[in-house]
Design a protein around this nucleic acid. Sequence first.
DNA 1: ATTGACGATGAAATCGTTTTCTGTCAGCGT
DNA 2: ACGCTGACAGAAAACGATTTCATCGTCAAT
Lengths: 337, 337
Amino acid sequence: MTIHDVARAAGVSPATVSRVFNGGKVTPARALSVQEAAAALGFAPNRVARSLRKQRSSVIALIIPDIENPFFTSLARGVEDAAQRTSLSVVLCNSDEDTEKERRYLEVALGEQMAGVIVAAASQDETDLGPLTDRGVPVVAVDRRPRDAEVDAVRVDNHHGGEVATRHLLQAGYRRIACITGPEGASTSEERLAGHRAALSAAQGSAAAAAADNTYIRHADFRVEGGRVAMRELLALPEPPDAVFVANNLMTIGVLDALGEAGRTPPGVGVLSFGDVPWASLVRPSLTAVELPSYELGRTAADLLLQRRDGSLSPVQTVVLRTKLQVRESTAGPAGS
Amino acid sequence: MTIHDVARAAGVSPATVSRVFNGGKVTPARALSVQEAAAALGFAPNRVARSLRKQRSSVIALIIPDIENPFFTSLARGVEDAAQRTSLSVVLCNSDEDTEKERRYLEVALGEQMAGVIVAAASQDETDLGPLTDRGVPVVAVDRRPRDAEVDAVRVDNHHGGEVATRHLLQAGYRRIACITGPEGASTSEERLAGHRAALSAAQGSAAAAAADNTYIRHADFRVEGGRVAMRELLALPEPPDAVFVANNLMTIGVLDALGEAGRTPPGVGVLSFGDVPWASLVRPSLTAVELPSYELGRTAADLLLQRRDGSLSPVQTVVLRTKLQVRESTAGPAGS
DNA sequence: ATTGACGATGAAATCGTTTTCTGTCAGCGT
DNA sequence: ACGCTGACAGAAAACGATTTCATCGTCAAT
């Protein structure tokens, strides 16, 4: 079932059939007979052959590091909705925070001549976008920023978000504020931690100065289990923290679990999550969180990709979206106050 | 950068380069020089050309109806882990419960000559797998069963699960048991509801007989909002139910929200969820749920696909996995007892 | 009526692989 | 020494679309 069969059935040449399907100029009468023949034969064009000839397919890849994290699935919907309005299809690839898996997916995207790639990089250093950009494939980095890659990017203001978060805890009266951040080497981890540190430094001279060292800093893996383990460690310290800034949504769940085990609950211990805790409505008491525009992140990334594809948007561009502190505590403050 | 360039650099023919990359018989010396040339040039084979020639690509598509539902993302991980051990890559497509989007993805899968398709169908009737199966593409239906499609399938025992769930509520002493199920036309909706009805019928003669009509039956959309709305409706009835069997995890979240609004909480009102509520550890008091083997569902589907691809596994096969009732209530029973 | 212009059409080249088919050469048995 | 066998290499034909280029009409203007 090829374009030739349709051509023969309709009594025209393959070229004409192709033109009918691609909006070339064809006499209405002929066009109609081609349509009919195609429908009768149940013809569906071979996208592989088309991609080979055009040197470009019509699907774009979205590579994310954790498909079980609602932040990324929401981002994915943003990408999809934006692509929806074009003729492009989106396929999702889950790198599982594994640079090797990610490498394979990037290789697939390149080999399949994909129309573009949106990637939330598993690593700042090992993620190599060179082969893609060298071949002129439009690439947009979203959420995470790969080191020295000259690609368009969309991210949130992590430093600012972290700073606002920790400042909020300070203002609520907490003094021994811990930070559980993500893996070293991830841009998001580092920036959120830096924001946290900046807020503490700014409060220097007060009791917060004591926390300037690394006693209350933990690096975990951005997953529930990592948050749980890190929080247990912090609780086991001789002088446990009275509040914790958690650098992502899933780790916050682990933190809340660990607190529950120890019989503590917010706001007795301050908990501030970077990123909405999924289905937060079920969590009582409600949590304050730095809200991330995950959907918009995806949508913006897709828009950038489409513009880049069009040839508009010449210089490389980075869009930074603002976070918003969503205060949900009814009565905030440390247990003792 | 094609196979020809590598061939020229290595002083061999393109055919030989191809053989080196595909395990054909080649003199070690030549093979080495090809490897070196390829590495030096940074050659990556064009998968599109390969797919065109081989009439089959090396990626499989997984089409799911809701990427924001942890049940499906867990299933996706199962698929991926199983495929991991082969040379196949998995790409995810989100149909969003929209048969039109699903149709497009199926078309893409066909046109891209994908090595196989695993699909959790958005609809029982409108999902047309014919074009795929006609062309000999291996297809596995997972979770949802498309009507009269002769494909391998993996699903859970929905009827049994629904029956066990409602029986559990009956045994806990609830008498006016409602059921919020999914959209009409989805196999999972229907089967779970049928199980619910079977359990009620079996209890006939008791007060449960009153619930045999449709007063307490609601069809919603398998999403949080649908559950919330349906539960509000039920609560507004002259004689509201004292328990509810909710046919999926997300709707249960909406139900719990609606109950919260009304100042009710389990076990004052019985709530039994079909499928684990995501991050259930945060929900207090804990919920009883019919546990679904989502990961295994995915893994089994991928295994079936791989077997079908190998040519083993001649007759069409359906694997039914068992659900497990996970009781998590400390003190169960209606408010009045 | 002749020429020019323009628009639709088909033939054929092309995209980059895989694979068949044919050839060559070395080694071996007789 | 001759032929046979077998293994490996290369030439060339696929795969199914798009697209260039040439051709053929048709129509209008002079």
